[in-house]
Nucleic acid binder design. Structure first.
Length: 200
DNA sequence: CAGCAGATTGACT
DNA sequence: GTCAATCTGCTGC
C-alpha cells in the first residue's frame, strides 16, 4: 500500500510528479491521523533547473536533504512563515524534488479544521503548499524523514485517467527565466482543491 | 555584516 | 487589489 522507495528513486522527476496525482498523503503525529488525496504537484529538476533550490549544485544547510536518496521529505520555510512540503526523488547526490502544492482532505478533517483555525470545509483549507502542510501538521522538524511511515507516508490511490491530468507552468518562479516555461506543474482537471497560484 | 527577494497566505482597503 | 509577516541565503559594501 505504501509506495516503495523504488517509486522515488527513478530518474524522471517529471514523470514521478505526474504519477503522484491521486495518491494518498498520510501523516500520523502523536496518534492523530490526517490524510488527503494529492491534487497538484510541481517538479524541480535539481542542478539544471533555475527554479530549484539546488540549481547549479548549490548546497546549504537547508537544501542538504535534497541530496539524500529519494523517498524522504524535504520541508523548508518560505517567506519565514510557511512550511512547504516536498518529496525528494532520484538517487543520492542528485537533488531532485517534487513540491506538493495541494491535496483534497480525506481523513481527520476535524483535526485539519482545528490546525487551520477554520470551521468550514473550503478549498482554501488545503489548496496551496503552505496550507496543506499546516493542515497535515507538517513542519520543518520533519525534513529528512522517510516517507515509508509511520509519521509521513504516501500510499497508492485511485488510478487517474490521463485526460484528467493537466500539465502547466509552475507558480511563482518567473525569475527562473526559460525554466519558468517548462510544463513541470500537474493538477487534476476540475478538482476544487487546486491552488490558484498567481499566473493561472 | 546590512539589505533584499522569495516554490505564500490571510487580513484589510 | 494591496500589503505585512518573518526566515534563509545571496549579493555587495
Amino acid at each position: 500500500m505504501i509506495l516503495p522507495e523504488s517509486f522515488y528513486t527513478r530518474p524522471d522527476v517529471v514523470q514521478i510528479a505526474r504519477e503522484l496525482l491521486g495518491k494518498k498523503l498520510v501523516t500520523e503525529f502523536g496518534g492523530i491521523i490526517t490524510s488527503g488525496i494529492i491534487t497538484e504537484t510541481e517538479a524541480y529538476a535539481g542542478p539544471i533547473d533555475r527554479a530549484s533550490h539546488a540549481y547549479g549544485g548549490r548546497r546549504t544547510a537547508r537544501t542538504e536533504v535534497m541530496y539524500s536518496h529519494g523517498g524522504v521529505a524535504y520541508v523548508y520555510l518560505c517567506y519565514g512563515i510557511h512550511h512547504l512540503f516536498n518529496v525528494v526523488t532520484n538517487v543520492k547526490d542528485t537533488p531532485h524534488a517534487i513540491l506538493i502544492r495541494a491535496i483534497e482532505p480525506l481523513e481527520g478533517i476535524d483535526v485539519i479544521l482545528e490546525r487551520r483555525k477554520k470551521t468550514k470545509l473550503t478549498p482554501s483549507l488545503t489548496a496551496g503548499p503552505g496550507a496543506l502542510s499546516e493542515a497535515l501538521g507538517i513542519t520543518t522538524r520533519h525534513t529528512g524523514i522517510t516517507l515509508q511511515g509511520p509519521e509521513i507516508s504516501i500510499k497508492e490511490g485511485n488510478k487517474i485517467p490521463h485526460k484528467d491530468i493537466i500539465a502547466a507552468t509552475r507558480v511563482g518562479v518567473a525569475y527562473a527565466m526559460d525554466d519558468a516555461l517548462l510544463p513541470y506543474r500537474f493538477y487534476l482537471s476540475g478538482n476544487k482543491y487546486v491552488s490558484k497560484g498567481k499566473g493561472l
